[in-house]
Design a protein around this nucleic acid. Sequence first.
DNA 1: ATAGGGTTAG
Length: 609
Amino acid sequence: MLKLLSSSSSCLHARAHIQQHPQINIIKLCSTISISENPSSLSFNLPLVSDLIAKQHWSELKTHLKDSTFITVLHQLIDSGADPELTLRYFNWAQKGQNVPRNIEITCRLLQSLSNAKKYPKMRAFLDEFVRRNEKHSVSSIFHMLSMSSNHFCANSIIVDMLVLAYVKNSKTNSGFEAFQRAGDYGFRLSKLSCNALLSALVKENEIGYVEFVYKEMFRRRIEADLYSFNIVINGLCKVGKLNKAKDVVDDMKAWGVAPNVVTYNTIIGGYCKLGGLGRMHKADAILKEMVANNICPSVITFNILIDGFCKDENVAAAFKVFEEMRRQGLKPNLVTYNSLINGLCCDGKLEEACGLRDKMLGLGLKPEIATYNALINGFCKKKMLKEARELFDNISERGLVTNVITFNSLLDAYCKNEMKEEAYELHNMMIERGVLPNTSTFNCLIHGSLRQGNIETARKFLQQMEAEGLKADCITYDILINALCKDGEPRKAERLLNEMFTKGLSPRHVTYNTLMDGYCREGNLKAALNLKTRMEKEGKRANIATYNVLIKGYCMQDKLVDANVLLNEMLEKGLIPNRTTYEIVKVEMMDKGFVPDIDGHLHNISSS
DNA sequence: ATAGGGTTAG
């Protein structure tokens, strides 16, 4: 009963749309009248045409139809109730070689006859081809046509459902989303299959706002979400750090009687691992416990996520504990496991252990990849063990691996940072010779290297070369330049670069603003520094602890201790907890000069009272 | 449907 009600109301809805577009209606009306009211005026013999199509006698058909248009024949075939597969065959033949006009109306009618005859695989192929041909038919024109030229509501729903899927499969997610949305306007029912595909594509494109919309719409339209739908949505939310919302979806799924599985838990654990901030690994660990308590067995992937998380949290010891636990449970560590651990050890400066682990994986028959070696090379570079790094670099091809841009960048950066200009340039040339294209990071290393040697001209040359090669400056390029200018006592020039970032669609990070404020503070221009703080807040970046540290220090340097205290209070009111740097500034610059802290940590100037 | 590759800045 409910279903009946909802479909009749959508018919009304569809009708309302038609009335808004009378011009389309008239065209449709004319074409129908001219053909079906005057069948005697046809200049061809329909049964003969059908027969010729069935036998694929195309040249005969062409001769026979020479006075009729493609469109007329198609309409006639459909109206006569011919086998839709025959009509489709004729359509494809005509479209392929006969230079016929693209016509959305006839396309829709053909689809409807296929849909009524339940020729689903043919429809899928047809729609796939239709979407791939990339004709400029708007989604709305397709919907208008469909709703006008048939009263078979279910047939249309199936077409629309397949259309969404075809769009998504051919990476036209925007059109897929639009079709999804319009399907709601017209009341066409979509399957969870195409909704899931759409959700998945939106997650891949980081359009999480749309993911949330589709998810909510599915409920509203009573499209039953399944385990996949929930997991995809959870993944999308985790990807952008909306862990609380992701957990709400877990509650949703439970309420709908869908039990979270290992993928659900892995996704949430991964979400916490990627989340910045303290205690994130603790939360990830808590989910692991919850999962076990719910009788969901952790998999190799679960452990890999945790191991990588702990490594990135600079807690290799905890990562190894997880590694042990993993093996205790009889799970076999794989390449990902070892790569994460090796990278963790390298970042921790434990190069012998990292190499040992590499040997161990070789012994287990796991072949290290280029990323494994990149981690090792980078590890040696960070410890200034350039000889060892170079040795690994030179031996990579012997191991059947190919150096990539990251391999080169790691070593190149190390050369730049250790004043080995010649080696750096040689490497830059070598990568070009070997066909490894330098990227923006490569140039960032070279630019930074030149600037740190005070060679502004060379830096400018690299910047120009980079742009000449079609590479765009990124946030890091700007950070490097802004930093250098501030150190040079040129914060005004640096701020011009900040402005430039916006024109290039780059959004400066907190540190960029903080660097600039520091630049102004150093030259005593507190007003400019404060203006920057206002500006960053306007641009949606909240002042952080580092921001306040820079400003408080700036005020202290000018002996404006009362103003510094105002900023300190503001920081505390915002719930920002002073760190070690704050404390050092406050201790030396304020407490030693007459300020005394009260029980809440606020400072009071006793010398003035 | 879930991991992940690693480089540049700070």
